[in-house]
Design a protein around this nucleic acid. Structure first.
Lengths: 227, 227
DNA sequence: CTTGACAAAATCGTATACGATTATACAATT
DNA sequence: AATTGTATAATCGTATACGATTTTGTCAAG
């Protein structure tokens, strides 16, 4: 063990300005404060957050990489449009990544992890705000995957899950799905407690696939226009 | 058919300056022009490429999102360090994503696709430069996945594959692996031609898992230092 | 020779400024 | 009235400039 190993993540000492701006814009997009396709005016954002355009632009570039924002040459950034086929694709990616994470995490899940997950499930029951519901939902899934100890994989999952949640907002209004989703959450957690990997993975697959199925039913067949 | 369908991706009309800078830096890192851990001086890069620091910083942010670059507060960007455990994790992610892509692509593979793949395999035989070998290798894999018609998935795969190739550089010097790899490529392509999904997926899994196995043997157990 | 303090240089991060591009409003024309 | 052309405003993209932070170099003290 060397001294260097004691200092906890140099890169995270301070949250950089672009980080903070990205966080704010991410929240705003996920909360629906900005609609799909809406332009994100750099001057306006900079003025609101009391910074210049440079950190705003860097934040927008990050969100572009996360798939929440699209850049058009000389026309700036706008909130990424919603397209049902994209939601379908994200669901497939999520299933591939999350079943992997779950399989890796399952043998390492502690009773503490399971209690934590149960706690989030209870919070989830009371939540009405769709953005906070989405955040809790991500937390629930993440805390089942975290014991896998795969930081890269978990980061990818979070990014894709967030993207997916933009689509789910549309569906979440229908309270029916929340109860359905909660039932699946409980089934998933139960399988984890029994260490039944095959069932857990299967429930997770159906959980995501069912969400996207509901999604494409609700969403208009014609995508939100790009222009 | 409407007029809009004729314009090929508005956002791609011109390659933006940050795009070009990112491309150049990506190539430089993949070619080993910059070593792992090496600082990327913004002024220097800006001067060399005849632009200001702003587009350079945006390019670095993109590369950060791609996992090729790490930012440290007030110390700028440096080439992401190489850590064997990270290579292992990327390999797991690649297997999950690429087996998915392959399964989706397999039923849609045309004879033309297969000929194209064979062509790349031949080019691969003659290639000595490890960076170009890596690019051809990515091309080979991509052209087997492309018929899946999953742009998001393919983009993710490319990013992870590029990241993985930084580790493979170390191993590629050993010519032995190239012949091993080529043998697996042929086995993969043969299985695709026979539309044998189970075998193809299995060969792909072993192809990636074998590479990372060789990798952790070659690489020093102690990671390249972060500081 | 090593350690610590300080000054100088290098580098970062971002605010400001400005040319270039795009969007908007409105007058001119058919 | 609809369409075209033109001036104006809004916005983008980036070069420049500068304070803040980090790194490097120097030298005196131990």
């Amino acid at each position: 063990m060397v001294l260097r190993n004691f200092l906890p993540a140099i890169e995270a000492r301070v949250q950089s300005t672009p980080d903070l701006v990205a966080q704010a814009l991410r929240e705003a997009i996920l909360h629906g404060f900005y609609d799909a396709g809406q332009p994100l005016r750099q001057d306006e954002i900079a003025a609101t957050l009391q910074v210049s355009k440079i950190p705003v632009r860097e934040a927008l570039r990050r969100l572009e990489a996360e798939g929440l924002v699209v850049f058009y040459a000389n026309r700036g950034a706008m909130v990424a449009p919603l397209r049902p086929d994209e939601a379908q694709e994200i669901a497939e990616i999520r299933i591939a990544l999350e079943t992997l994470a779950l399989r890796l995490a399952l043998p390492k899940l502690t009773p503490r992890d399971l209690r934590h997950a149960r706690g989030i499930l209870e919070d989830l029951d009371g939540e009405r705000d769709s953005a906070r519901w989405g955040a809790l939902n991500r937390d629930f899934h993440q805390c089942l995957y975290a014991p896998a100890q795969r930081p890269q994989l978990l980061a990818l999952i979070t990014t894709q899950h967030r993207r997916f949640d933009r689509y789910m907002r549309v569906v979440l209004a229908a309270m029916q799905h929340q109860t359905q989703s909660q039932a699946e959450h409980h089934a998933l957690l139960d399988a984890c407690e029994r260490r039944d990997g095959a069932i857990a993975v299967h429930v997770l697959e159906e959980h995501i696939a069912g969400a996207v199925r509901l999604l494409v039913e609700q969403l208009p067949p014609e995508p939100a226009r790009l222009l």
